[in-house]
Nucleic acid binder design. Structure first.
Lengths: 124, 124
DNA sequence: ATCAATGCAAAGCATTTGCAGGGCA
DNA sequence: TGCCCTGCAAATGCTTTGCATTGAT
């Protein structure tokens, strides 16, 4: 039986607090500071467990590495092309879903990512 | 000076015809059938060139591998969670962009991906 | 005692890079 | 000749896997 172990809870708590949509490596680095020993395998294992439990969401922003998000409520992302930052914004609604309905497609999620330049990065 | 070589043109033409948003490997496999010799490096080099030229778009659907798209007009994607197929649909419009405008964020692209189950895959 | 979780190292992919040879201007 | 393109192989980075050990019930 799968259980919420200390490692998994630690990682989950970290994700709850931080809002930078960390990569597995970033989670690993934080975890290393809080436990005597932890391996990448455990981090990946824990992240997969938490995603399967529905406690985290895996976010695919670019092709470099997966990022993880503890915000489960529907929301959208502002993604800066320069610094790569990912900021949560309220869920964007689509003006008209009818083109999808007519496609005979069963929707489970609508992902809206806004790409551009954040105010910290010189715009352009 | 960068030029549109035969290999690059071949790859571009392939992307123009097919509409399955292939991965680099899929492009490589097709190219291999049409040229005596071609290497992965050339495929990646060509894809990067075409993306930089604005002739292709790189699409990040999942974290496994990047996919490429020759359809440049704004459009959205229907992505099946079961078979992984990616189907183009007309561009979805957002009902209200004001939450973004107020963020002091310069928008360069709005990405809308609809995740779910296509009619070919048993729904659920 | 049992069964899952962990650490470690190795393996697996996708992608990038270094470098020598080849092709075109 | 010069310079970019190509092929090949090695390297890199992210993620997964195999396996022996550890830990909890």
């Amino acid at each position: 039986m799968k259980t919420l172990t200390k490692h998994r809870e630690l990682i989950y708590n970290d994700l709850q607090i931080r809002r930078d949509h960390p990569t597995a490596k970033m989670v690993f680095d934080t975890a290393k500071n809080n436990v005597s020993k932890i391996s990448f395998a455990t981090v990946y294992n824990s992240l997969e467990y938490l995603v399967n439990q529905g406690m985290l969401k895996k976010v695919n922003i670019n092709s470099d590495s997966a990022r993880y998000d503890a915000v489960l409520e529907p929301h959208s992302h502002l993604i800066c092309q320069t610094c790569g930052s990912i900021k949560d914004i309220p869920a964007m609604q689509l003006a008209d879903m009818s083109p999808i309905q007519s496609e005979d497609f069963q929707i489970s999620d609508v992902i809206v990512n806004i790409i551009g330049y954040c105010k910290n990065c010189d715009n352009k």
